[in-house]
Amino acid sequence: MTYSWDFRPVLEHFDMLALGLLNTVKIAAVSIVLGVLVGLVLAMMRLSSRRWLSWPAAVFVEFYRNTPPIVHFFWFFYAFPVLLSVSMSPYVAAVLALSTQSGAFYAEVFRGGIVSVERGQWEGGRALGMTHAALMRRVIVPQAVSRMVPPFIERSFELLKTTALASTLAYADLLYQAMLVNSETSRPPEVYTTIALMYLVLLVTASQLARLAEARLTAYQ
């Protein structure tokens, strides 16, 4: 290996990378929040005993679990606008792709948590005369939440990594900014190693924070 590394040109453009990092965090945060909403609706539909509610939700979830994320990005950016005859910014398309994707996975996390609560807990509450709503609120959900936390964190971690695909739609995330810096400096090893390390720091920090939150949320067990 005779390559002589020189990080100075990259560091000169660090402000561009920092902006990219900020945009990556922003799109991840927005997509997690929207994904949770999508996931809650889908999970409630799937848990319903009415077939016309549970079936479409199941199809939606299976469709997302069995197709690559990049297809969703391109579909929302190029196909969806044609269908509705509207124009779509890279940001909106990427948020739609990320939040529907994560929504499908979150739905499984939420449903799995609810289903994992033992039948006896339902019966214990019912035998006291609780309504379905009260039973959910007081008995089932509090127990399910602590079981949802670890898979929820895992899914959010995956989402954070998937945000890099937004660059393919020219959304100015960390990877896209790196491509710009690369075309100015022509130093691919330095540029791509730098952002790989930036992603590493971001993801490791996020998972450490998540672990702290997890320890708090699952305290009673």
Partner: peptide, 19 residues
């Protein structure tokens, strides 16, 4: 702990220059 897309890009654009 890094996106797989970054890995592919790294192996395509950075790695050949290094080796």
């Amino acid at each position: 702990d890094t996106p797989v897309l970054i890995q592919l890009i790294w192996f395509y654009y950075a790695f050949p220059i290094l080796v």
